[in-house]
Amino acid sequence: MCRSIKTLRPPFEESVTEEDMRAAALQYVRKISGFRRPAAHNAEAFDAAVDAVAEATEKLLSSLVVRGAS
């Protein structure tokens, strides 16, 4: 879907920062909405979506069990 979003789970990435998750969320919301930067009247919805996707990403990554990881 969006080639600029990188895989954030081990073994592809050992350490993932909040900034990494937020950047991926931003790319996802940009792709889905079709906006690089939304107009002022859409900014609140856009920012809320980025926050929600970043939160979901953090929950997902903290819940995954990667076999063979120590």
Score class of each variant (00 low, 15 high):
residue 1 M to E: 15
residue 3 R to T: 15
residue 4 S to R: 13
residue 4 S to F: 09
residue 5 I to D: 05
residue 6 K to S: 14
residue 9 R to K: 08
residue 9 R to I: 08
residue 10 P to F: 10
residue 10 P to Y: 15
residue 10 P to A: 10
residue 12 F to N: 11
residue 13 E to C: 09
residue 13 E to L: 14
residue 14 E to L: 09
residue 15 S to R: 15
residue 18 E to G: 07
residue 18 E to C: 08
residue 20 D to K: 00
residue 20 D to Q: 02
residue 20 D to R: 00
residue 21 M to N: 00
residue 21 M to F: 02
residue 23 A to T: 09
residue 23 A to P: 05
residue 26 L to Y: 03
residue 27 Q to K: 14
residue 27 Q to H: 11
residue 27 Q to E: 12
residue 28 Y to K: 03
residue 29 V to I: 08
residue 31 K to F: 11
residue 31 K to C: 15
residue 35 F to S: 04
residue 37 R to K: 13
residue 41 H to Q: 11
residue 43 A to I: 07
residue 43 A to S: 12
residue 46 F to H: 10
residue 47 D to W: 08
residue 48 A to E: 12
residue 48 A to R: 12
residue 49 A to I: 01
residue 50 V to I: 08
residue 51 D to I: 03
residue 51 D to Y: 05
residue 53 V to F: 01
residue 54 A to D: 02
residue 54 A to M: 06
residue 55 E to M: 06
residue 56 A to L: 01
residue 56 A to F: 00
residue 56 A to M: 05
residue 57 T to M: 06
residue 58 E to H: 08
residue 58 E to I: 08
residue 60 L to Q: 04
residue 60 L to T: 10
residue 61 L to K: 03
residue 62 S to T: 07
residue 62 S to D: 11
residue 64 L to Q: 06
residue 64 L to R: 10
residue 66 V to F: 01
residue 67 R to M: 08
residue 67 R to Y: 03
residue 68 G to T: 01
residue 68 G to Y: 00
residue 69 A to N: 09
residue 69 A to F: 12
